[in-house]
Design a protein around this nucleic acid. Structure first.
Length: 116
DNA sequence: CGTATGACGAGCC
DNA sequence: AGGCTCGCCATAC
């Protein structure tokens, strides 16, 4: 796969986030090889929402939140977006506080690249 | 090819 | 703590 689009790399990283755990945009970007591509990750997630799947593989986009430990989706219009992400996370056993905030210290995914 | 945009992030006030 | 601005990266037009 030459000239692989950045999105695909990002999706691949997101797909590695285990259930019941979350990752930040910046973290995903770094793992995908982008130093400061947090915004690009968001872009990839947005592009993904149209299909929600890549090559038949389901991408857990709902496990991606911002560095503040909160759901970043803008005010979901028509019930889409944030409420849906919060519901998906809770379904995995993650406690989503009011305002879509999540305790990173408790649910943040520790990628293999990150050492303790 | 230049400009605008965006599910971000860190810094400042 | 809350809000505003600038920076970064990859697409869309």
């Amino acid at each position: 796969m030459r000239d692989q689009r950045a999105f695909e790399k990002i999706w691949r990283v997101v797909a590695r986030v285990p259930r019941g755990r979350v990752a930040t945009y910046g973290q995903i970007a770094r793992m995908a090889g982008l130093l400061n591509g947090a915004r690009t990750v968001g872009w990839a997630m947005r592009a993904l929402s149209e299909d929600r799947r890549i090559g038949g593989r389901r991408v857990p986009w709902h496990r991606v939140i911002n560095a503040q430990g909160a759901i970043s989706l803008r005010g979901g219009e028509d019930g889409g977006g944030a409420p849906r992400q919060a519901a998906a996370l809770r379904r995995e056993g993650i406690t989503v506080l009011r305002g879509g905030r999540i305790d990173l210290g408790r649910y943040l995914w520790r990628g293999q690249r990150q050492r303790t």
